[in-house]
């Protein structure tokens, strides 16, 4: 029974790590291939955060209960709060820098 639980957790760790690496690789492809600045920023924020959370959750399952997993939980909370603020600062900076988004449909931001 214990052996079964051990192998199940080992399987869960590899599922989490492979999911995280898939998201990180899609971040790199999106950074290269997307045509506009703001769409590039979409790839740089969402896929990056999903990959980071998945890799760190895999490390928590690998570690078990202890002080190290508490540090990893603090790292997840810090990364979620910090990175969204950083992305918003970059977007607001680019808006002041006169980089216009390439919109296909006409925008309704100037009513």
């Amino acid at each position: 029974m214990i052996d079964f639980i051990h192998s199940l957790s080992q399987l869960l760790v590899y599922v989490f790590l492979l999911t995280g690496i898939y998201f990180l690789f899609s971040t790199a492809l999106g950074m290269i291939r997307f045509p506009d600045f703001y769409t590039r920023l979409h790839a740089g924020s969402k896929c990056l955060m999903a990959g980071g959370i998945a890799v760190l959750m895999g490390c928590i399952v690998l570690e078990g209960i202890g002080f190290v997993s508490l540090k990893l939980i603090v790292l997840i909370l810090f990364l979620v709060i910090t990175n969204s603020i950083a992305i918003h600062v970059i977007a607001s900076f680019a808006d002041n820098y006169n980089i216009l988004p390439k919109t296909i449909v006409e925008n309704d931001s100037d009513e």
């Binding site: 969402k46 999903a50 979620v80 919109t103 925008n107 931001s109």
Partner: peptide
């Protein structure tokens, strides 16, 4: 929050692996 991040990351990463990425972005207030 964490559930929504995974849900939207799947949707964005599907655009990254297409042969011709097709968007329809717009700005709203």
């Amino acid at each position: 929050f964490i559930y929504d991040v995974f849900l939207s990351a799947v949707r964005v990463s599907r655009h990254a692996f297409e042969i011709k990425p097709s968007f329809s972005p717009r700005t709203v207030r």
